[in-house]
């Protein structure tokens, strides 16, 4: 079996949040870096959905259980409570209707883990102020740019509480935040949220 690509910083932070031997569904699993990490380090029963043919193939060829499918339709197929965690590692912002996807993820998994790029990081604010551009092409397609505070509001609207949130800057996790997001919203380039109903 070939090795999976090395996990990104947000994926290492996600792995810390997943309990041992949990059942995990990753929406948009790419080439399987996080699935591999979860299986190896958390003993998780981790499965993925990936729309890209080549990436889904790379996963299956590595022995990872991955279904090649559009993300939204696959999420709707799973029964209620089928997983302990549903994970979006930089994929929620690319979906057509992230609010719907969050509610579906809550139905399917109970706990939901989401990593996002923070559009209100100080560098992003300067970029917007001085160049007039919002996106620097951080993590693939971002159809929905959010700040950390924007996403917290979206999670609340989907009736999900933030159990734990970790900002990441230059690949390093910062101090977790839950109540006050002011600092993280300025200095976190990305953030990982653990959400629970």
């Amino acid at each position: 079996m070939q090795d999976a690509p090395p996990p990104r910083a947000d994926q290492r932070a996600i792995a810390v949040l997943v309990s041992e031997a949990a059942k995990v569904l990753e929406i948009g699993c790419g080439e399987g870096a996080l699935l591999h990490l979860l299986a190896r380090e958390r003993g998780a029963r981790a499965r993925g959905i990936e729309p890209d043919r080549a990436k889904a193939h790379a996963c299956v060829a590595r022995g990872l259980p991955v279904v090649q499918s559009e993300l939204e339709s696959a999420l709707a197929d799973f029964p209620t409570g089928a997983f302990d965690f549903v994970v979006f590692s930089h994929t929620l912002q690319g979906l057509r209707d992230p609010h719907w996807a969050l509610r579906e993820a809550r139905r399917v998994g109970g706990r939901v883990i989401v990593s996002i790029a923070n559009a209100a990081h100080w560098r992003a604010r300067l970029r917007l102020a001085f160049t007039g551009r919002m996106l620097a092409g951080a993590h693939g397609a971002i159809a929905h740019p959010w700040s950390i505070r924007d996403f917290a509001a979206l999670a609340r609207a989907a009736r999900l509480n933030i159990e734990r949130a970790t900002p990441l800057s230059r690949g390093n996790p910062g101090a977790p935040f839950a109540k006050s997001m002011l600092r993280a919203n300025w200095f976190g380039e990305e953030a990982v949220f653990l959400l629970a109903p």
Binding site: R47, R53, V60, V67, S69, P79
Partner: peptide, 21 residues
């Protein structure tokens, strides 16, 4: 085959599905 994969997902079974070009 996609119908099979969707049914397996709905049943909570561990499944892989690929459409090979």
């Amino acid at each position: 085959s996609r119908i099979i994969a969707r049914a397996l997902m709905a049943a909570g079974a561990e499944a892989s599905f690929l459409e090979i070009k």
